[in-house]
Design a protein around this nucleic acid. Structure first.
Lengths: 251, 251
DNA sequence: CGGCCTATTGACGCTACTCAACATGAGTGG
DNA sequence: CCACTCATGTTGAGTAGCGTCAATAGGCCG
């Protein structure tokens, strides 16, 4: 019972949120924290499959994943989509909407999610009072640009197996950063989503995963992934020099 | 002689720069303009092949292309690269460096370039005095994120011919926006750069261009491109509904 | 004019896609 | 609790698109 109440209170304040170091600027003082808490809405919950925002929808807020995970995609002809990213706790999304004042992609919950909301109206009003907030957001957007450059490298030059390896190691590093095991984790997205994201066919993803199991690099059972041989898996990534080291460090 | 002097003076001031509406926030008053002119360095010239910035280099400035064009790429193993973008006059680059305080890619002039520089130090100092500057930069970064999402769609789902068509129409729209013909233009990048950017082999690019000529969609002679049949070329792009219309409108 | 770099064209092979069958697990209702 | 259905994942066979290798052509610069 106590635990439930604690969880509730944690949800309601950035100050006590264990993810604040991931999604907020560093070095905020107490005043600034309470300013933020006034701006940010902590209430929103999404069930699996529910939309957070949709292509064309006017820009209302930026969003931070508090728990659960989110899939972001571009809708294409005939109900087909292109998955452009997955977001975990502590990650912000919705930056795509700033430029056009409307979202240019759609975000859907992959599982039950708690979402914090940073309304754009309040953002503009109170930006002055929290120095470094804009800088922080720009920093996050910059990181997103860098990540997407790496994605272009992935889709442009890497083989199917290299893509899967890179993908798994990327997830591993992100789980690790959040205090979970970098070796064992559960995928929150389907093979279909993975395939789509990596520019592959579902069958290819399946085959690669099976092959990596045969090579004793990983153990995989549906959503469950166990990385057995991080070293050799890293070698698979192989295209960029510094990339592998970054992943080993869990950056 | 007068012309030369005029050109010189144009280079030295945002106020009179014909590109200011592309790279600066809208609705600046004269005070804000002169503030900007104090911050921005207008002097830098690059010859073909010279670097604007390099992977790992500390974040010093954002850059605006004033004339010429720039190629941005990730260096990979063995001197190989992944081209991640091309920039034309009026476009800003260097956003990748904000997050890490160092550049995560390299930028090189494709031809003789004039570059305006927005030093990061002054940016932070004077941001308060020019309301909307941060918002504008975030807006540009947001657009870059959206464009890279479309790039992921390109690399993930589109065929070789669709990629070439999309690429040519994208250039066409950007030239059009700058007052040049959307039908006839000169490529500033090599086939190699195009192939690399689009995740294809040079030979495939060559073959596709030849094929499009056979189909009377375009006329191409090395760097020179003449789009003969915009309509049908647009149909080639085909994957996203609204994409084609955007290109026809020259957005 | 000659050498070099870029672009084009052709032949061939491989990777990854498509189509199809099958397996497995999750969810539902009796 | 089990049987049924549907969604998701796996496996196999055949193929097409694109990459690779190699030869040739055309422009650029010394």
């Amino acid at each position: 019972m106590n635990k439930v109440i604690n969880l509730k209170s944690v949800q309601m304040s950035c100050t006590q949120c264990s993810l604040s170091q991931l999604c907020l600027p560093r070095g905020l003082d107490n005043d600034e924290f309470s300013q933020l808490d006034k701006i940010i809405k902590h209430e929103r919950t999404l069930k699996k499959g529910e939309q957070l925002f949709e292509l064309g929808q006017p820009f209302k807020s930026l969003y931070a994943v508090r728990s659960g995970s989110v899939k972001v995609f571009l809708p294409i002809k005939n109900g087909d989509v292109q998955v452009v990213g997955f977001h975990m706790p502590g990650e912000l999304l919705g930056f795509d909407a700033i430029g056009h004042n409307a979202h240019t992609c759609t975000a859907v919950a992959l599982e039950t999610c708690n979402i914090c909301e940073l309304p754009s109206a309040q953002l503009h009003e109170h930006a002055q009072e929290i120095p470094g907030l804009y800088e922080h957001l720009m920093s996050l957007m910059s990181d997103e640009i860098t990540e997407e450059h790496e994605m272009m490298l992935m889709l442009g030059r890497k083989s199917a197996e290299e893509r899967i390896a890179t993908f798994l190691l990327n997830l591993s590093a992100r789980y690790s950063k959040r205090g979970f095991s970098p070796h064992k984790f559960h995928l929150t997205m389907s093979r279909n989503d993975i395939a789509n994201y990596l520019g592959l066919a579902v069958e290819t993803v399946s085959r690669c995963i099976t092959h990596m199991q045969d090579e004793k690099l990983i153990e995989a059972n549906r959503k469950y992934i166990h990385i057995l041989d991080m070293e050799h898996l890293c070698e698979f990534v192989g295209t960029i020099d510094h990339e592998c080291e970054m992943m080993k460090e869990g950056v």
